[in-house]
């Protein structure tokens, strides 16, 4: 009898954690969808400072004022370049769509030419303004574009994170895979490794600062380090305001030309 009880206790001790883990189990896709669907507010405005640091430590700084608004099935974003002086008053507008089959619409206003030019959003692998961020890195990549696999859990900076590996379904995608560390209870990516076509580590994105603003978890400071070329880009958001009711006409040709 005692032996039977011992067997039952032993079995319970073995099975319970397994059952518990199975019940708690979440798929890689669900984690990435949670990050993608994390509420960020209906609109946001902020000052962005982008610092480009080369392997010698020389720093070049770009400052941008940006506005974003959710229009339901589409999101509009407009950026006004403040410095350096030779790009001042240049503006860039992007309309992105929930429909993953629809490409973004993009325009750039060049003050020297006094012209708004429509540009193709096809070159997502282009680097944004000479930084270490590609246009794809800066955009909201739809979860269905990749295959996601939960490969573990890890503590980073005191935060309990899921570790998810994502491989693009498009064989021509610029990265062979990415690995992202996502904070469990906040659905914020805290760190992301990007691997090149040879499956060597190319660059690492680290989130340096995030806060709750107007009730939304908001990333305020990131750093992208290209480990192969040893240069870095820091992005810092300041004066962040969320849900202030930005007017719809902020995202028009008129505002691109008018500037700040």
């Amino acid at each position: 009898m005692i032996r039977k009880i011992q067997v039952v206790i032993l079995a319970t001790l073995i099975v319970l954690p397994v059952l518990s883990f199975a019940m708690d189990k979440i798929s890689g896709l669900q984690i990435i969808e949670n990050v993608y669907n994390r509420q960020t507010g209906n609109d946001q405005q902020a000052d962005l400072t982008m610092s480009l640091i080369n392997s010698r430590g020389d720093e070049r700084v770009r400052t941008i004022r940006q506005f974003t608004k959710d229009f339901g099935a589409m999101e509009k974003k407009i950026m006004f370049f403040k410095t350096p002086a030779d790009v001042r008053n240049t503006s860039f507008m992007n309309w992105s769509y929930d429909d993953e089959n629809k490409d973004d619409d993009q325009w750039i206003y060049l003050p020297a030419l006094k012209k708004i030019k429509r540009i193709s959003s096809d070159s997502k692998s282009d680097y944004f303004m000479g930084s270490d961020f590609t246009y794809d890195d800066l955009g909201d990549r739809h979860p269905s574009q990749d295959t996601h696999k939960l490969i573990g859990e890890e503590m980073i900076n005191g935060e309990n994170c899921y570790v998810v590996e994502s491989i693009s379904k498009d064989e021509d995608y610029m990265y062979s895979k990415t690995v992202i560390w996502i904070i469990k209870d906040k659905w914020i990516g805290l760190k992301k490794d990007f691997y090149d076509e040879d499956e060597d580590l190319l660059k690492t994105l680290t989130v340096k600062k995030f806060e709750q603003i107007s009730g939304y978890w908001t990333i305020l400071s990131t750093e992208m380090h290209n480990v192969q070329k040893n240069h870095t880009t820091r992005m810092q958001l300041e004066n962040v305001k969320i849900d202030t009711g930005i007017a719809d006409n902020q995202f028009t040709e008129r505002m691109m030309r008018r500037g700040l």
């Binding site: 020297a112 030419l113 006094k114 719809d248 006409n249 028009t252 040709e253 008129r254």
Partner: peptide
């Protein structure tokens, strides 16, 4: 020359009326 130097300013009165994304 650069195009901002080729195009000369002209004294004008310009009015723009906006209707959404139409001008």
């Amino acid at each position: 020359p650069d195009f901002d130097e080729i195009r000369m300013g002209v004294t004008a009165l310009k009015a723009d009326y906006y209707l959404g994304d139409h001008t």
